[in-house]
Every structure is written in structure tokens, then in C-alpha cells.
Design a protein around this nucleic acid. Structure first.
Lengths: 98, 98
DNA sequence: TGATCATATTGAATGAAATCGATATGAGGT
DNA sequence: ACCTCATATCGATTTCATTCAATATGATCA
């Protein structure tokens, strides 16, 4: 099974972990650098870095390097796609292939 | 960290697996019994049953028993909640706590 | 009540994810 | 060149998920 579902499954994986959900929520108010995120989240620095990698690889978050810092922000386009995906599920029995 | 994020993380976990995404897509056109789902999905019967349990426990899918059969359908209310959750992330820097 | 069918559960194996301490990288400042 | 700071990677450990074969449950039917 190597289809479009595995693509979406990968994106949804970004949302499967509470630390990552918290990061996404923090990014909702705008771009943040890793050190700011680290203050708010209850994990160590290597663990946060691991989660940020998952978020970036899934496409949900952008990384922008500037000097020593890495600034993260939401990729709102992919969030709109996810929103559409879920809306199609909600939309009343229209028999359209997802 | 035992907060609202872990609640949503559990719901999003339903979407993390391609087999489960395929099931959700199949349910989009209406209620289906497990035997119908089993025909379409590339896993064995116990594995499908395991996935259906995850979907039901997360609240994304309803199970209705009728005689020998179990009929599954989407819980559209929780899908609307997810939709709202993602929309709040998209919505432009409004500083509202998620 | 015994057979059959649909589904659930159990137990075991294998694989993936989360976490952390230690260390590496690489930019800036002295 | 050296030191420091921010972040990334590595290696190991532990925990969690996926899968299947085997078996259990429980409804229907002969």
C-alpha cells in the first residue's frame, strides 16, 4: 500500500504527539526560534530538535536559519490542505473519491 | 504533560496510519460493516479489528452492532472539531490561546 | 444443540518512535 | 585562533504500534 494515504498519514503524524501539538500552537502567533520553544516545552534540547525535524520533514513547519538561530513558522498552505481533507470526510455522503 | 494536547494527539493518532485513512475514506460514503471494509483494505481480519478499535476509541468512528455484524460510521461532530482546531492554526496571528 | 459466520481478543514478533546524555557543527564575538 | 552559544546528530534505551496466527465470543441457522 504505497498511495496517497501514506502521504497524508505522514503529515498527520506531525499532529500525533502532544509536544508537537504544543509547538504548533506556539507557532500560531507567529515565527519563533528554537530557544523560545524550548522554554515552553517540557523536553530537552535534543528531543525538541528531533520533534522540529519531524514537523519540518512533514511539511507542516518551515525552518529559516539566521546566524546561530533557527526560526520556525507554520506552513499554512499545508494546513489548508489538511483542513480540506477533513472537510471532504465531513461533507455529506457525496461519493466523491477522496 | 497531561493536558488538552494529549486529547487531540489521541484523535489525530487515528489519522496516522494509511490503513485507517483508507477506512475513513471508505466511510465517507456512509456506514459500512467490517466485512465490506475488509474486502477493500490490505490487512487481515484481526488487524482490521485492531484498527477499528483505535478509530472507535479515539471517537472518530461509531460502532453499531446488529446481529453478527458491526457497522461503522464517521462521527462527523469530532471531525468538525478537528477542522476547527486546524483552522485556528491557520487563522492569521490572532494570539488566541488554542 | 451443534455448525457456521462475523468479529474480537490474545500472544508473540518485529519495527518504529520518544527520550536522553554525550558530542558535533557552525556562527559570532573577543 | 579560541571560546561561547544555538542547534543538530549519534547511540542507546525504553516504550509503543503494527501485524499475524490462533483462539474466543456470540449471533444465527439447521
Amino acid at each position: 500500500m504505497q498511495n496517497e494515504y501514506s502521504e497524508y498519514a505522514k503529515v498527520f503524524k506531525a499532529f500525533c504527539d502532544e509536544t508537537r501539538l504544543m509547538v504548533l500552537s506556539l507557532l500560531q502567533s507567529g515565527e519563533k526560534c528554537a530557544c523560545v520553544l524550548l522554554e515552553k516545552v517540557n523536553v530537552g534540547q535534543p528531543t525538541l530538535s528531533h520533534h522540529m525535524k519531524i514537523l519540518v520533514d512533514s511539511g507542516v513547519v518551515y525552518a529559516r536559519k539566521q546566524g546561530k538561530w533557527t526560526h520556525y513558522s507554520l506552513n499554512k498552505e499545508i494546513l489548508v490542505d489538511l483542513d480540506d481533507y477533513i472537510e471532504k470526510l465531513i461533507c455529506c455522503e457525496n461519493h466523491e473519491k477522496l
